[in-house]
Structure formats: C-alpha cells, structure tokens
C-alpha cells in the first residue's frame, strides 16, 4: 500500500481561531499523509481538532475567525493553502468532497433532492440537463436508494435519516473525487443504519481508487473501515500507526484509554471504563504533555516538557513513557 502515490500531504498545519479570550490553537502542528486508495481514520474526543483539520483541508474554515496560521496542505501536487478561493471552489465537490455528521440538517429543506444533487455537476462538468438528471438518478441508485426516479423530485424532509445520509454520500461521490473526507458520517444514525452506511462506503471504496479521511470518535468504525489511524489530542497527533498495531499494541496512554472505554458486546460484568477528566480547553493546555493531567502514569517530566512525536518502526507516538514499548526509536521529529 505504501508504494502508492500520496494524494494528500499535510505538513505542520497550524489552524488558529480568534476568540474573545485570545487566539486558540485548534490545530497545532499536524503532519500526516494519505495515499491513493487508502482510508485513514482520525480519532479523538470532541474538541481535539479533528473537524478543524478537515475544514482546513476543504478550505471551509469559518472565516475570518478561523484561519491557517502556517503549514502546507499538498493535494495532488498543489499547495491548497496557496490557492485562491476560486481555485479552491473548483476542487471542492469535484476532486475533494466531504460528508458531514448531520444528515438531517445538511440538506437544504426548500430544494428537491434532484435540484441539490444537480448543482455540483452543473459547476464541475459540461453535461446538459438531461444527462445531469440521468447521472443523478444512477448515482442515487448506486448508493442503494430505491425509487430514485421519484426521490429526485422529493424534498429532504420526506426521507429518513439513513436515506438522507445516502443522498449526502451520493452528493459527495457525483464527480468521482480523489479524496473523500467523512466527518462522523454515522454518528447521528441508528446503529443498524450505521452498519448499512459503513457497508455502502466500503463498497464504494472497493470499486474506486478514492482515498478517504474518516473522522470519528467511534473506534468500532475505525476497526471496520480504516487502513491507518491517527489519534489526535488537543490539536496534535499523539499516535499514528496502521489499524492492527493501534488495536493490538497501543503505545500512548490516551490511545489505550480510548480502547479501554470501548464497550464490548459480550461483557456485562464491570463498569464501563472511562478516561478521567476532559480534553483541556485550547486556552488551558498545560506546558508539558497536554494529556498529562489525565494520565495515570504521568511523571514530572511529562508535566514540564512537551513530548515529541517519535517513531518506533511504523508507529508514531507522542509520549515520554510509551506503554508496550516496541524495540527502539527509529527517528523523531
């Protein structure tokens, strides 16, 4: 898989938000690469910078409050941070598209499904009206929507949540993007519908060479979908490795905590475990390791000195005392 060409390279991305209490570092020096055809999961609790990272890539940060302070986002050889709004617009919905968390509110209530799905094709292709209609219908059919010819003239409120998320997926897939960013695509759905949507996304992945950046806080979804995982905490990547390694041999105490807090289907004996405390507010991040106040094995060094991201073979971790330490440090940044 690694021989494939990188499609997205994010280098030292820093995204800041201006607030009444000063500047908040929502994304604080994030590096990652996504290769063609690969699914990378970004995991973390609410407020850890997952969504801000994806909005930075899409160029959809709520300006002027949020902005990219520094760093580069290379997509198919172009630096997205240097593109004009017009150039970005040509990429959005075309080469990069996005699925959002809330299918109930992500579709415009006063336009029909057909009207909304036609728009990206109108913007990015030269198809005529009839061709667009046919393309939309066949896309709706391919995401498993029954009665596509009728649904195209219906309004979002006439569809269920699962159907709406299928519509959102078809909207994102219309122009056959090279990269799909899915921001918690199943969080708002019923469990049974979640499984269907994940199956659908896997099926789509299997037939295209599209890369996917999957943002979630559900490790079950990660295990199901992803090739590699990146764990974020307080705006930084704290651990990154392929999905097997993360599940079998987590090195960062935060990753371990996340895994431990996953309920398992067959066990009902004890209490669910949780990580004490909550993600620090971005303006209250301690000087040392951001996770130190919640970490059971934190030492004075953790509290004073910020750990660097170190690589152990193909596993990167930002911790002074990695658990289940692999052989040796190969390099560090």
């Amino acid at each position: 898989m690694r021989e494939r060409a990188p499609i997205l390279e994010v280098r030292q991305l820093k995204t800041h938000i201006k607030t009444a209490n000063g500047i908040v570092k929502a994304v604080d020096g994030v590096d990652f690469t996504i290769y063609e055809g690969e699914t990378v999961g970004i995991v973390g609790e609410s407020g850890c910078g997952k969504s801000m990272t994806s909005l930075s890539v899409m160029g959809l940060l709520p300006k002027p409050m949020a902005y990219i302070e520094s760093g580069h986002i290379h997509f198919a050889g172009r630096d997205l941070t240097q593109l004009s709004e017009k150039e970005m617009r040509k990429l959005r919905g075309n080469d990069i598209s996005m699925i959002f968390q809330e299918p109930m509110t992500s579709l415009n209530p006063v336009f029909t499904i057909g009207q909304q799905l036609s728009e990206p094709l109108k913007q990015h292709t030269r198809l005529n009206k009839k061709e667009i209609r046919n393309a939309v219908i066949s896309m709706l059919q391919s995401v498993g929507i029954p009665r596509a010819e009728q649904i195209i003239d219906e309004y979002p409120h006439q569809l269920s949540g699962g159907m709406r998320q299928r519509v959102m997926i078809s909207l994102a897939m219309l122009c056959q993007p090279k990269l799909l960013i899915a921001d918690e695509p199943t969080t708002a759905l019923d469990v049974t519908i979640q499984a269907q949507i994940l199956e659908l996304m896997k099926a789509i992945k299997a037939t295209t060479n599209m890369a996917m950046m999957l943002i979630t806080h559900d490790l079950g979804v990660v295990a199901e979908m992803c090739d590699r995982v990146m764990v974020m905490y307080a705006g930084q990547v704290v651990e990154s490795a392929d999905v097997r390694t993360i599940f079998n041999r987590p090195t960062h105490p935060y990753t371990q905590g996340l895994l431990a807090s996953m309920p398992t289907a067959n066990e009902r004996k004890g209490e669910l475990s949780s990580i004490p405390g909550s993600v620090p507010r971005p303006d209250e991040i301690p000087p040392g390791c951001a996770f130190a106040p919640r970490c059971s094995i934190a030492t004075d060094r953790c509290r004073q000195e910020r750990p660097v991201l170190q690589a152990y073979e193909n596993q990167w971790t930002r911790c002074w005392h990695p658990i289940s330490k692999p052989s040796e440090v190969t390099h560090a940044t």
């Binding site: 899409m58 996005m98 959002f100 509110t105 579709l107 415009n108 728009e119």
Partner: peptide, 28 residues
Amino acid sequence: KDYIRTAKASGIPMYKILSVYALKNTLI
C-alpha cells in the same frame, strides 16, 4: 446552517449560494 456548508463543499459559488440557496430559506 449546515446545508450552506454542504453547498460550499459542493463547490457552488458564493453569489449563487446567496441568491438562490440561502435566499429561498430567508424568504419564508
């Protein structure tokens, strides 16, 4: 609203979002 973000993510130009997609909701 979320659907305006969706429209932006689809690459719809701002003038069209304002004069069509957002306007109809505003008119109600």
